[in-house]
Design a binder for these strands. Structure first.
Lengths: 189, 189
DNA sequence: CGAATGACCGGAAATGAAAAACGGTCATTT
DNA sequence: AAATGACCGTTTTTCATTTCCGGTCATTCG
C-alpha cells in the first residue's frame, strides 16, 4: 500500500477513535509507520488531512443512502428510505458520531465547520432528489432548496430531537405516518 | 411596594442584564434594598427565585401570543401569527434572549433546563390550539402533540436556523407560502 | 417577639505562572 | 529525491493560591 493511503487509514482510525482535537500528527505518523514530516508531503496541514477523511466519509454516506432506495419505487418511499439511512449513518458511523459529540461538547471550530458543511451537502442531496422527482412528474414544482431544508429539519426533529425531550423514541411508522399525511401529501402530484 | 415584589423586580432586572450565572444574590439584595437573608424568607434558593421570574416571563409571552391572534380569523392565520409572535418574543425579550445566549455559550444547567421547559410549554400551547381547531371543525383530527412539535420545529428551522447557514433571512411571505402549501394545507379540513 | 440583616462558612470558581504538548519546519539521513 | 525526527514558537494543560458566591444563623432592629 502506498504511503498516502497508509496515512489516510491511520488518520481515519485516529479521528474516529479520539476525534479531531485529540488526534495528534505524531500519533497519525506512528500508526501509519511514517515520519511526521512525510504526512506534510501529502497534506498541507492537519485540517486538510481531516477534510480528506471527511470527503471519504461523505461518499460512503451517499453510497449507503443510494443503496437504501429502490429504483422505480415511489418518490415518498425512496425519500424516506434515503433520509432514514442518512440519519442512521449519522449515529452509527464511528467518525460521524464522534464529530457530532466533539462539535457539541468541545466545540472545536474545525469540526463545527465540517459538520455544517456535511449538513449543507445532505440538504443539497435531498434538493437534487426533489428536482428529479419534479422532472419525473412525481412531485409538484416547488422551491427545492426550501423544501429540502424543511424535510431534513423535520426528519432531524422527529428522529433525533424528539427522544431528547420525551421519554421514548418515535417509532418509524409514527414518523412516516405523520410526514406522509402532512409534508409528503402536499408535495406529491 | 412589598418586599417580595421589590426582590422580584430586582432579580428580573439583574437576570435580564447579566444572565443567571453572573447574577449574585448579593447584587439582587442590593438592587432590591434588602438584606440578603430577606430573599431567603421568600425564595428557597437562587434557582427558585429564577424560576419565579421565568414563570412571569412565560405568562407575558403567552399574553402577547394571544394578542397576535384575531378572534374569528382562520386557524392557519392565527397559528402563524401566534408562532411568529412567540419567535419574535424569543429574540426581542431581553431576559429570553440573554438566557438563550447563556444556555448556548456558558451552558449553565439551570438555564438549559428552564429553556427546555419553556419550549415544552410552547409546544403544549400549540397543541392546545390545534385541539381547539379540531373541535371547531377547522382542523383534521390528528396527533396534536406530534403535529404541534413538527410545526414548532418547522418555524424554528425557517425563522431561526435558516439565517445561520445562508446569507439572508427568509422573508415572512416565503415562510407562510411554504408552510401554507405543505403542512397547513394537509392539516386543514 | 418576630422579621430583617450581614458577617461568616465551606465549597466552587477564577487566576496566573510554570510545565507540557502540539502543529509545523527543515537540516540531516537514507 | 524522498523520508525523517529533533527542534521551534505557540498554545494548552496543570495546579497551587486566591477570590467569590450561595446559603446560614446569631444578632439586631422595629
Amino acid at each position: 500500500m502506498d504511503r498516502r493511503t497508509e496515512i489516510l487509514q491511520a488518520a481515519a482510525k485516529s479521528f474516529s477513535l479520539f476525534g479531531y482535537k485529540a488526534t495528534t500528527m505524531d500519533q497519525v505518523a506512528k500508526i501509519a509507520n511514517v515520519g511526521k514530516g512525510t504526512i506534510y508531503t501529502f497534506f498541507a496541514n492537519k485540517e486538510e488531512l481531516f477534510n480528506a477523511i471527511v470527503v471519504g466519509m461523505i461518499e460512503e454516506m451517499r453510497t449507503e443512502a443510494e443503496a437504501a432506495a429502490v429504483p422505480g419505487a415511489p418518490f415518498e418511499e425512496n425519500a424516506h428510505a434515503r433520509l432514514m439511512s442518512i440519519l442512521k449513518f449519522r449515529t452509527t458511523h464511528q467518525l460521524y458520531a464522534k464529530l457530532i459529540d466533539e462539535g457539541k461538547e468541545i466545540r472545536t471550530p474545525a469540526v463545527q465547520e465540517v459538520l455544517a458543511d456535511i449538513e449543507a451537502q445532505i440538504v443539497q442531496f435531498i434538493a437534487e432528489k426533489i428536482e428529479k422527482g419534479i422532472m419525473r412528474g412525481e412531485v409538484k414544482p416547488c422551491n427545492t432548496d426550501l423544501v429540502a431544508y424543511l424535510l431534513f429539519k423535520s426528519y432531524m426533529a422527529l428522529v433525533v430531537d424528539w427522544g431528547k425531550t420525551h421519554d421514548r423514541e418515535l417509532a418509524e411508522t409514527e414518523i412516516i405516518d405523520l410526514l406522509s399525511s402532512t409534508i409528503f401529501k402536499s408535495l406529491l402530484c
